[in-house]
Design a binder for these strands. Structure first.
Lengths: 193, 193, 193, 193
DNA sequence: TATGAATGAGGATTCATTCAT
DNA sequence: CATGAATGAATCCTCATTCAT
């Protein structure tokens, strides 16, 4: 049984996703969470104050999807494909929330928390790159920490562009994935036999 | 002497930058623009309807900076360095307002206009890549239109990461620029003598 | 045709009188005033901010009633009777408002305005006492300004006691009036032939 | 060691005095009293229900001060001076809370209790007047019960006027006391050899 | 075109009160 | 008796939008 705070965060994610940030009413969130209006304010002092908690959950979800999709015993290239697939999937599913987290965090003092929240994701990718670098699969000159951020950022951007610009999403998504993958392979300097 | 529409757009940029989207009132904008409340609605049908016009101005500024910084007679790699410099500069200067535009457009039906507005920027980069591809400076497999979007997106993301995560901005910015440049060179498969 | 501000003040007096301060909603006031909810806030920044304006109107009403009831060509004692009658009437009619003006003013920063607002009433009574003192109708040792305040205060208090304590108001009011009149006559040292 | 009910009353006096009626929350009161929110309702059925208890404590304080200041073996006039001094002192010290009580009682059905609560004070003054009347020190026509209320009301009003209207309180208070005393002496028709 | 007073729907927030423990 | 987490009704105020001038 979830505690009330978790219920609120889950409900908030759901409703924000459904309605967007402006249209969402606290009453929608608490209705879905199955609690009273006032109870919300026992846990969060304002409408926007859930944002950091949501951000945390979303990043956890992203990591979980990536960890689940990626087969660690596959080849590096295969794993890269899986990572792109996973990030595209998460971004497509949750792009509205991700956008509003960004806007929500940006419009408050919570923006500093973003780095902390994303850190586990970066760390996982860093580790992935580090192994590949050590086995010579990617170029020697890669700086794994900084590259992990560029890599995640690039794939997210690529996924968002699909959503923004293309309406025939299904095939365009595959084309864009292929493009970003090709881009990434060269960027990482993959040398796989 | 600016006409009223321009005054509104300039004032809106100023106020949105100052207060963020939620906190900005039409009354703030018209006060700064020196016009009456009702006059706003002669030019824009709603609060968010000014966003595309703002976006347009901002993208024009971005393109102007890029065109100004890039020397078209330099080598491809030199021009790439200049492009990265230019986009970093614009993003650092206007990142707040750019985030707002994105959020503002995203929260309305105006989001489709984003592509139109950004198109001249993409076109310019596409042309730049096309020439390089024709002269064999970058790899043959590049799809210039899609790559132009990835390239701009990647550089912007890289610049934003500096702002988000690093406080010692001056030296970190240079390191990040170098990293993204290296990343890009490999991604594009540069073959320069 | 009254302007909007006056309409609001009149409606506020009416509704406060009817419902008391806690139970009164802004929506009640604007409904009675025949204006929109938001219009209220064009003229007064908060619910309690009408209070000084109400106070002013109430004191004006009090003075008007007194001036209307008192026949200036009657004897001093007769005029005193009329003053007592007038203040009792006003206090009975508007005691709820008077109480909440007092509470409302007291709970804000507006309390200093009270003196200004009551001043015309004091002045009128002062003048009345001054004439009587000059013609030797009341004792020589009277300080007219200070006594005017005591006199008004005493009559108001006497009227309020009736309201507070006695339910058979009609006859009790007459007894209390007689008592306060007797009290006052001695206090003023009336010497009327 | 105080019992819980007393703690609540004391805390309520403190908080109401500090914040006024509207701004005071039950949570403030219980926090200061050092008890749980629910415990309040074991002793008082509503927020305003504590008002009569506060009133009682305040009136007890008033009576105690009067009894303490007044020397029963002094002459009537001297005792009158002492009564005026005592009521001025109490009113100056507690005028805010007294105003609140009045407003608080007035805004509920508890107002009827005010008479009961004040009764001991009235009785004490009545007794004082009765003795004076019997010994011929004050005029025969005095109705002692009704006059006791007028007397207390008049002195309180006089004291409040000092607070409201005069900032140089020290000397003004003495002048006002002298004025009200003179007023009272005549009103009561004192005949002291 | 320009004005700015007027509108009124809408929702975040508060807080007195309850009740399961 | 005591607790304090939970409740949810109640309302002030905001502010985008309109429209008579």
């Amino acid at each position: 049984m979830m505690n009330k705070k978790e219920k609120i965060v889950q409900a908030a994610i759901e409703v924000f996703k459904e309605k967007g940030i402006e249209k969402t009413k606290i009453s929608d969130i608490v209705k879905l969470a199955g609690i009273a209006q006032g109870t919300y304010y026992l846990y969060f002092p304002s409408k926007l104050a859930v944002m950091p908690a949501i951000a945390e959950v979303m990043v956890e979800k992203s990591i979980a999807v990536v960890k689940n999709e990626v087969k660690r015993d596959a080849s590096f290239t295969e794993q890269l494909v899986q990572i792109v697939d996973a990030i595209f999937k998460v971004t497509m599913d949750y792009r509205e929330i991700l956008a509003l987290i960004y806007a929500g965090l940006a419009s408050t003092e919570h923006i500093k928390e973003w780095e902390t929240v994303y850190q586990p994701f970066y760390s996982w990718i860093s580790e992935f790159l580090k192994e590949a670098k050590e086995t010579g699969v990617i170029r020697e000159s890669i700086h794994v920490e900084r590259t992990s951020k560029l890599l995640i950022g690039l794939i997210e951007i690529a996924a968002e562009q699909i959503y923004l610009y293309d309406y025939r999403q299904d095939d365009q998504a595959e084309i864009q994935k292929a493009e970003v993958l090709e881009f990434l392979k060269h960027a990482l300097g993959i040398q796989e036999k």
